[in-house]
């Protein structure tokens, strides 16, 4: 039982990270119907920026671990968000009216570009996060010994998701984003600045992805320039699992995928871990072709 709960909490933490990345995919998809294949690399940029800022500025020494990490996260999010906006302006904006798959190839090109930029700057080897930033604490929760960092990661992702959800549901900008996702033409007629909305989406999505990158660095302690591919793929899977374009769907899909993977690796076979995740996805899509929370789209006649 101990092992089950250990795996469950681990799965929840990893799922939270997947969910944060998945939100970037799903928000961009909602507004532009574009799969931003470079999103995984924005996540990698987040983790490398986090590493650089952490080691060069020694924030945690000056401000203490908590505020240090918090300030670091804010800086990483803003910087990655700006990269996201630039990415959209350069690689996607000229392709708004073109066939959808053209934008996908542009995204793949951007992904190759980012990946190799990171490799040229930092080198191809694994980079290790400093080990002594957060106190190595193990918390006793109902007799379970859970590492502090796992709880923090889960907590941080839940807080960010709740904040995003409130922002999307309650604020004017959030309403504009929902309107643009629903029907861009109608939103324009209602006086919504759709280009502005797209810019905001391309700031928020990558910012969350960058935060997830920082969290992976802190959680696993090492980062590599190719890790964006696999995390991006997993998060994209999560977004589809929940129904792409649907924000709560991405959250549910991410957490679910993390848990399935952790339990599958523990109880079925670690070598088949990734295959299990995809198999579950395929089975769910066979039964529910638009994901768990995706709406049924009426066929146009």
């Amino acid at each position: 039982m101990e092992q089950f709960f250990q795996q469950l909490t681990n799965g929840l933490a990893v799922g939270g990270i997947y969910a944060l990345i998945a939100l970037g995919y799903t928000m961009v998809y909602g507004v532009l119907k574009l799969i931003n294949f470079a999103h995984g690399d924005l996540f990698t940029i987040g983790s490398y920026l986090g590493l650089t800022l952490l080691t060069s500025m020694a924030l945690t020494d000056k401000l203490g671990p908590f505020f240090g990490i918090l300030l670091l996260a804010v800086m990483v999010m803003i910087l990655v968000g700006i990269v996201g906006i630039l990415l959209d302006q350069v690689a996607y904006r000229p392709l708004r009216e073109s066939p959808r798959l053209s934008a996908v190839v542009s995204a793949l090109g951007a992904s190759i570009f980012f990946q190799n930029t990171i490799m040229l700057i930092y080198g191809a080897s694994f980079h290790v996060y400093p080990q002594n930033i957060l106190p190595r604490m193990v918390v006793n929760v109902f007799g379970l010994h859970i590492p502090m960092i796992r709880i923090l990661v889960l907590l941080a992702s839940v807080v960010m998701m709740l904040a995003l959800y409130t922002f999307i549901q309650k604020t004017t900008i959030g309403t504009a984003i929902r309107a643009a996702a629903e029907d861009q033409g109608a939103a324009k007629l209602m006086g919504i600045d759709v280009n502005g909305v797209i810019m905001i989406v391309f700031f928020i999505g990558p910012a969350l992805g960058g935060a997830a990158g920082l969290m992976v660095g802190l959680y696993y302690g090492q980062v590599n320039f190719t890790m964006g591919w696999i995390y991006g793929l997993k998060a994209f899977t999560a977004a589809i699992l929940g129904g792409i374009g649907n924000i709560p769907g991405a959250m549910v899909g991410g957490i679910l995928l993390g848990v399935i993977e952790a339990l599958g690796a523990a109880y079925i076979s670690i070598a088949w871990k990734d295959a299990i995740a995809f198999l579950v996805l395929i089975l769910i899509l066979i039964v529910r072709p638009t994901g768990l929370l995706g709406e049924r789209v009426a066929e146009k006649i």
């Binding site: 350069v90 690689a91 000229p94 392709l95 009216e97 073109s98 066939p99 053209s102 934008a103 190839v105 542009s106 793949l108 090109g109 951007a110 992904s111 190759i112 570009f113 980012f114 990946q115 190799n116 930029t117 490799m119 040229l120």
Partner: peptide, 21 residues
């Protein structure tokens, strides 16, 4: 080492200038 970097950028630009392929 930078060849794939140029390749990625080239893909983006080829797609922008010839959106239909």
């Amino acid at each position: 080492n930078a060849r794939m970097l140029f390749f990625g950028a080239a893909m983006v630009f080829m797609m922008i200038f010839r959106t239909q392929g």
